[in-house]
């Protein structure tokens, strides 16, 4: 609500934020080019001679090049994610399945989202969202291994094919791998729809800087968040001071 009463909390490191936006860009690119690759359409600009058509704007070659380039950027961007995870406690979003409090918070948020409770307990990182990120990372993991399984088999004797090639065998045959890759891509888009909505809704409902936190790394909460212990350990006073700087 009113910014004046809110405290500022530093949650997300730049590494996570850059990773997040790289992920957004590459997922949008991968999905649109992927749809073309799965069901290419002919717009008639290519002419009848493939030698020249290959340089056309909508050639499969270029679409595939963009797809593969985005795939590499996407995969490599996880280095930033891992580094942020190591550096900053706020980036460690893995849900605490082993703690009782996690389930209490989860239920609290769930009741709020189903309109049974008018608000949920203040938290820096939404427990339900954290569970959905695990699902997202799992889907992304499937996309990466199935994607590279198809991609590396262009050169069946390369080291990449030795690592990823057996995935084709594991899942039955390579055709199945194509299908899985295609379906999971749609699942990720479903996640994105709900994710964007939930972020916008959180901003609308609580004005805690949900969306801007992905740019600035900072959230504003009027009350002490229940999960404050997750990002501070009390030992590192400098971190603590930074997080608790009062804006109002």
């Amino acid at each position: 609500m009113e910014r004046g009463h809110s405290k500022q909390y530093y949650v997300f490191s730049p590494f996570l934020r850059i990773f997040h936006w790289l992920m957004v860009l590459s997922i949008v690119t991968l999905f649109t080019t992927g749809l073309y690759i799965g069901d290419p359409f002919f717009i008639g600009s290519q002419g009848l001679e493939p030698t020249y058509a290959v340089t056309g704007r909508l050639s499969m070659e270029i679409m595939r090049f963009i797809h593969f380039a985005a795939a590499y950027i996407f995969t490599v961007s996880f280095i930033l994610r891992a580094y942020g995870f190591w550096r900053n406690k706020g980036d460690r979003l893995f849900p605490h399945f082993w703690k009782k409090q996690y389930y209490e918070d989860l239920l609290d948020v769930f009741l709020h989202y189903t309109f049974i409770k008018s608000s949920h307990k203040p938290c820096l990182r939404n427990p339900l969202a954290r569970a959905s990120y695990v699902a997202l990372y799992f889907m992304v993991f499937i996309e990466i291994i199935t994607g590279f399984a198809m991609y590396t088999m262009i050169k069946p004797n390369s080291w990449g094919a030795k690592i990823y090639g057996p995935v084709n065998q594991l899942l039955g045959d390579e055709y199945t791998v194509h299908i899985i890759h295609h379906y999971v891509a749609w699942l990720i888009i479903l996640f994105a729809i709900v994710h964007v909505y939930m972020a916008a809704r959180a901003d609308f409902m609580d004005r805690e800087g949900e969306i801007s936190s992905m740019f600035s790394g900072v959230k504003f909460l009027p009350h002490e968040p229940v999960d404050i212990g997750d990002i501070t350990d009390g030992k590192d006073s400098s971190v603590r001071d930074r997080k608790h700087s009062i804006t109002g």
Partner: peptide, 25 residues
């Protein structure tokens, strides 16, 4: 390996049409 090493797609003489986005509908 010598007979099943490559995809038919990667050795197909129609591959240039694929790369150029020229498909029979």
């Amino acid at each position: 390996k010598q007979f099943y090493g490559n995809r038919i797609h990667d050795t197909c003489y129609r591959r240039p049409f694929f790369n150029s986005g020229m498909f029979a509908e």
